[in-house]
């Protein structure tokens, strides 16, 4: 399937017809709603909060933020940023409750430090990977965006960005830029390996507010059902810690395997290999 990101910049792609098509399609509405609900679940807000909606479009996600039930900590108020004037026009016609701004997220996030409790972004940040003119670079746009977002969130705040990377390169480019800006970052993948795979970049600012959490990004998904944590860092750490004692059975086996891999002739291993002998007398 062709990607709209590859054809035109977002402000031109989402023209009046495209914006209307996007907003009235019930299929897109359903997908957007489920992704927004998933993001809200990840944000785990328990009081009415101030939320930044990045790439709010016609307010499909914002609508859900304003309609969160009081028993679940809502309704939240939100400020939406989008680069497409046509999308914002549709949002006005739909009479959404949040404040709207026409802004390019690649130019930064013009809010003072600590403004928001949380930020949410549905299918938007992959647009940052495209530089439309030679004056701007995608890395520059990404770093301006993440630096601005980091500053505008309060300490202990979270951001959840659902995005569609074109390939692994874009995925690492986006998460790398977020980490560089200072976020604690992790990627949650729903329905991995299927056509409906959805990637959520989960970002935290500073330590976790809750007591008992390790302050690690994996704490965000703690207690969620059906989430496996794949932590590449842990494997690395364990490898470094496990120092084999020279002369031990594990060490001998390791050396034998090493030699065998080199193509050397190695005595075959048996139950006696590396076994300590009895005291002779």
């Amino acid at each position: 399937m062709s990607r709209p990101e590859d054809t035109l910049p977002p402000d031109l792609h989402y023209n009046d017809t495209e914006a209307r098509k996007y907003t009235t399609s019930s299929r897109i509405q359903n997908i957007q709603a489920s992704m927004t609900n998933r993001a809200l679940e990840l944000l785990d807000l328990d009081t009415p909060s101030m939320i930044l909606d990045i790439g709010c479009g016609s307010g499909l996600s914002g609508e859900i933020l304003s309609s969160v039930d009081p028993s679940e900590g809502g309704p939240h108020i939100w400020v939406g940023m989008d680069i497409s004037a046509s999308m914002l026009d549709i949002a006005l016609q739909r009479d959404v409750e949040g404040d709207l701004m026409l802004a390019d997220i690649g130019q930064g996030v013009p809010f003072r430090a600590g403004s928001f409790d949380a930020a949410i972004s549905i299918s938007a940040i992959q647009w940052l990977c495209n530089a439309e003119s030679s004056e701007v670079s995608s890395t520059g746009r990404l770093s301006r965006f993440f630096n601005g977002l980091y500053a505008s969130l309060k300490r202990g705040g979270r951001a959840v960005c659902q995005f569609y990377p074109k390939n692994d390169l874009q995925r690492t480019m986006i998460s790398g830029a977020a980490i560089k800006a200072g976020f604690g970052a992790g990627i949650l993948e729903d329905d991995p390996g299927t056509k409906n795979a959805k990637l959520y970049l989960v970002l935290t600012v500073g330590g976790s507010a809750n007591e008992g959490d390790s302050g690690d990004i994996t704490g965000v998904v703690k207690g969620m059902e059906g989430v496996d944590v794949l932590d590449a860092r842990r494997k690395h750490k364990e490898k470094g810690r496990k120092e084999m004692k020279k002369g031990s059975k594990a060490w001998i086996n390791h050396k034998k395997a090493q030699m065998e891999a080199k193509g050397k002739v190695v005595k075959h291993s048996s139950k006696y290999t590396g076994r300590s002998r009895n005291i002779a007398f």
Binding site: L102, D104, R144
Partner: peptide, 14 residues
Amino acid sequence: KEGIANFLLPNHLV
């Protein structure tokens, strides 16, 4: 305009 602030900047100001 109509409640929407325009924060788009020309490239040289970013």
